[in-house]
């Protein structure tokens, strides 16, 4: 246990002293700030547009009952931040996972470790504890910044339920980022040349973080015509559902493609928690959990699968000690 702690501490120190990591983290924090600012501005623009329309209708003597005043939900400001975490947060986690193994390979330090009285499994566990602690710190830093911006800059009082929802989103982010960390560590462990592992991880990242969610959207029949396909042929939503029942195979395929993307699961869960998806706004934690249990299971499933696989790979891998030059 003592040794695991020593390794974890060293891993943590190693990353914190890496200025690329620190710069990347700063970049992510700046993006969070920008996104929240843009989100707030966007709301102001909506409100002023509402005011203008409202005044114009009043002046013209028109009824104003059809207009709904935009309502402000502070947690919805996190939407862009979540999207940045999906994309850039994943890159950060990949870099950590990659560097954690690649550095040892490049510096030829593994023979120093593996000839000491510590098992490979224990050594990897130490690395895991250190890096996961680092990801926890990153999430804590980001989400505390978010709470700080909302409370002190925005002057908005957050209820305990809202804070709990933010903290749960932070936890979901931790799991999401850890999955990418573990995947990168797994690839770097298994492949002889770390740079090839990095590229493979990036290709996977590109595919599942950016491409697959886009494919799901593109394949939505309703998105084929501006303003909605069904709208164009005067069919309302309940009717469209009846018609689409004849195309279950296609719809299953479309959903199936989306299901493979871990990003989509993370997004669905956090968007529900933060009320970014309107139907979950103001709902209790129990309700959201029950409705999104599938997403939670997917995230945890990926986390434990990659965790176990990388631990197993590190204990057994023969290429770890092969020279990379």
């Amino acid at each position: 246990m003592d040794k695991i702690f020593t390794i974890a501490k060293k891993e943590y120190k190693d990353a914190v002293r890496n200025y690329v990591f620190v710069t990347f983290l700063a970049f992510l924090i700046v993006l969070t700030g920008i996104s929240m600012y843009v989100g707030a501005l966007n709301f102001h623009v909506k409100v002023s547009l509402f005011e203008k329309t409202y005044q114009a209708l009043i002046a013209a003597g028109q009824p104003v009952s059809t207009l709904t005043r935009p309502e402000f939900f502070p947690l919805q400001l996190l939407r862009a931040t979540i999207e940045y975490l999906e994309i850039i947060g994943a890159i950060l986690a990949i870099s950590l996972g990659y560097l954690s193994i690649a550095k040892e390979k490049g510096n030829n330090t593994l023979p120093l470790i593996f000839t000491r009285p510590i098992t490979r499994k224990k050594y990897y566990l130490g690395k895991l504890v250190g890096n996961l602690a680092l990801i926890v710190s990153v999430c804590a830093l980001l989400f505390i910044t978010i709470i700080g911006i909302i409370t002190f800059v925005g002057g908005i009082h957050l209820s305990s339920l809202e804070i709990a929802k933010i903290l749960l989103s932070a936890f979901a982010t931790f799991i999401y980022l850890s999955i990418f960390f573990l995947f990168a560590a797994l690839c770097t462990t298994l492949m002889r040349f770390p740079s090839n592992a990095l590229i493979l991880t990036f290709v996977v990242w590109l595919f599942f973080v950016l491409i697959v969610p886009q494919i799901g959207d593109t394949m939505d029949t309703d998105n084929q015509v501006p303003g909605g396909f069904f709208n164009a042929i005067h069919i309302d939503q309940p009717q469209s559902k009846i018609i689409l029942q004849q195309f279950t195979l296609y719809e299953t395929l479309r959903n199936g493609i989306e299901e493979t993307s871990i990003t989509k699961h993370y997004e669905r869960l956090t968007f529900a928690l933060l009320g970014i998806k309107d139907i979950y706004n103001g709902k209790s934690l129990g309700y959201i959990f029950l409705d999104k249990v599938w997403e939670v299971l997917w995230l945890l499933g990926f986390f434990f699968t990659f965790g176990t696989m990388s631990l197993y790979a590190f204990s057994r891998s023969k290429v770890l000690l092969q020279k990379v030059e």
Binding site: N107, N108, T109, P111, T115
Partner: peptide, 15 residues
């Protein structure tokens, strides 16, 4: 009971 110095070891340069 052993000590080992591999060839071309570079150590942890951040430490």
């Amino acid at each position: 009971c052993i000590g080992y110095l591999p060839e071309n070891v570079k150590f942890y340069d951040s430490l």
